[in-house]
Design a protein around this nucleic acid. Structure first.
Lengths: 133, 133
DNA sequence: GCGTTTGTTCTATAAGTTGTAGAACAAACG
DNA sequence: CGTTTGTTCTACAACTTATAGAACAAACGC
């Protein structure tokens, strides 16, 4: 695992963990079927409490991304190639994207530069999941 | 003002207020130079405490979007046409966008649909600022 | 079966955030 | 001068965050 958390950040630890896992799934580093460390294992790796890891895993389970199994740790349930998103996912995502995009527009970022930035981020995800099958 | 807040939301009130103002600036509803209600006025409109509004205005000032003046309320300092963003804005924005985009990719949203969604959101901003000058 | 590990579920505690509340003060305006 | 407003302070209840310990059932290796 190459996940990293910032203890000094204002972002809660469990949310940082959730974000890193989501990014790893999007990048193809954690494809569907792959497994993550157990809560106690990951907690000791980072030197944090295992309840904090448990909370992050629980969020990921609620989002349908993880299945938690005893003894084995956690298993990634879906990735970019598994299938279409759940029914109400896109509407909620769109409103969050609206807030984030508005912030950039209000600060004077041009639409072209915005879309370019998004595309370049998506390219970094694509670069990791190059499977020459 | 056509701003709206959801008292039942899990998102803090002051952050909702901030988000609505940012979106209004991006939409052209609040162009640079326009003014917002005083903290006490806006608070009584929503039936909330004026300290909460003060916190939202303070965040917007820290981001360089608002100037707070006594007696006059608040003035919008910049909008989409004011000029380029502050130096370190884009790098911070990009990492937040990365997390949001990863969530969509991990849930199976295609890149094409993602970019389409972003473009359609940007179009809603553009539609409001149609000034036939 | 037996022991160990793990997810899960409780309680508890300390620190920080959120929202409300009231008081006080200096600046701005008519 | 009097009023309004931003600003700053203290204070409080409710909630969140992170840690901590205890206990239990399910899963696995031996």
């Amino acid at each position: 695992m190459i996940l990293g958390v910032d203890l000094a950040s204002e972002v809660p630890l469990y949310q940082q963990l959730r974000d890193r896992v989501v990014e790893a799934i999007a990048s193809g580093i954690l494809p569907a079927g792959s497994s993550l460390p157990t809560t106690r294992q990951l907690a000791s790796d980072f030197g944090i409490n295992f309840h904090t890891v448990n909370k992050a895993y629980d969020l990921l389970r609620q989002q349908g991304l993880l299945r938690l199994t005893r003894k084995t740790g956690a298993t990634v349930l879906r990735d970019a190639h598994t299938g279409p998103p759940p029914p109400d996912f896109l509407s909620g995502w769109r409103s969050r994207a609206r807030t984030l995009l508005a912030e950039a527009v209000a600060h004077g970022v041009s639409e072209a530069e915005l879309l370019e930035t998004c595309e370049s981020v998506l390219a970094t995800f694509r670069a990791e999941s190059e499977d020459p099958a």
